[in-house]
């Protein structure tokens, strides 16, 4: 009997179905746990899902490529979801048009601070050059961040993971932080979430209001564009 089970396991572990199903089912279960804990930040559904999946991969000695064969179907949807952000943007177009200059200034300040402080702090604490270059674009959406990291000589796959952690941190600290610095405007809250923690922050902003979500989508797009164009330029100007 154990033989039978291990044969089934060997079969399933190589199939996309197992890892795709496990990712979705764990995410749903983690959502339930998170609700039971009344949305305590440390039990963010994504944190639980990622932690359990990593534990399962390590325990079963499954490599990441095998996992990704199944999970890529979910990963792929990041692209269409990014395109779909045009919908809340369209819904809020009049407010955005009225605020275009402040938005541009806030984005430049926020995205600049994100990159400069990440690199500066990591450098002070003795990170390697490759790690520094992987951290520089960490606040922007995954595809842009990976492309920029590659241009700068970082590790795109490390960047992809750091981008996700940045997103989680942003989503978790944003609520209390906005209380402390007394920012109550949904537009400012949403935009900051999009600029500082990309699509993940946008997901969080959508739970505040659709206006916050729209401004987050805008922040994600603007910070992404600015970072894609300006970070490689800044790197060249500073001459490494």
């Amino acid at each position: 009997m154990p033989n039978e089970i291990s044969r089934i396991w060997v079969y399933l572990a190589e199939q996309p179905l197992l890892w795709l199903t496990l990712t979705i089912v764990l995410y749903i279960a983690a959502g339930t746990v998170s609700r039971l804990a009344k949305g305590h930040p440390l039990v963010h559904p994504v944190v639980i899902t990622i932690a359990v999946l990593i534990a399962v991969l390590l325990a079963t000695d499954t490599n990441y490529d095998t996992y990704f064969d199944g999970a890529q179907f979910i990963h792929f949807l990041l692209g269409p979801a990014t395109v779909a952000l045009a919908i809340p943007l369209y819904d809020n177009r009049s407010q955005i048009r009225a605020l275009w200059l402040p938005l541009l200034i806030a984005c430049l300040a926020g995205a600049g601070a994100a990159a400069a402080s990440a690199v500066g702090l990591a450098w002070l604490l003795g990170a390697s050059l490759q790690t520094l270059m992987s951290l520089a674009p960490k606040s922007v959406t995954t595809p842009i961040a990976m492309g920029v990291a590659e241009q700068l000589g970082g590790l795109p796959s490390l960047t992809a993971s750091v981008v996700v952690i940045t997103g989680i941190v942003g989503a978790v600290v944003a609520g209390p932080l906005f209380q402390v610095i007394r920012v109550q405007d949904d537009r400012a809250r949403g935009f900051a979430l999009g600029v500082a923690s990309h699509g993940f922050g946008t997901a969080q902003a959508l739970t505040i209001s659709t206006t916050a979500g729209a401004f987050a989508g805008l922040g994600l797009g603007m910070a992404g564009l600015m970072t894609a164009f300006l970070l490689p330029l800044a790197y060249r100007l500073l001459g490494s």
Binding site: L99, L101, P102, L103, I105, A106, C107, A109, G110, A111, A113, A114, A115, S117, A118, V119, L121, A122, W123, L124, L125, G126, A127, T131, L135, K138, S139, V162, I165, T166, V169, G170, V173, A174, L177, F178, I181, V183, Q184, D185, R187, A188, R189, F191, A192, L193, V195, A196, S197, G219
Partner: peptide, 26 residues
């Protein structure tokens, strides 16, 4: 240490600066 401090603090800094700058205008 450098990775976690950089990710944590720079995210807080970026959130705060963006939100404060924009809310000053709004």
């Amino acid at each position: 240490l450098p990775i976690s401090v950089a990710v944590l603090l720079s995210t807080v800094i970026a959130l705060a600066i963006t939100a404060l700058v924009l809310s000053r205008f709004t």
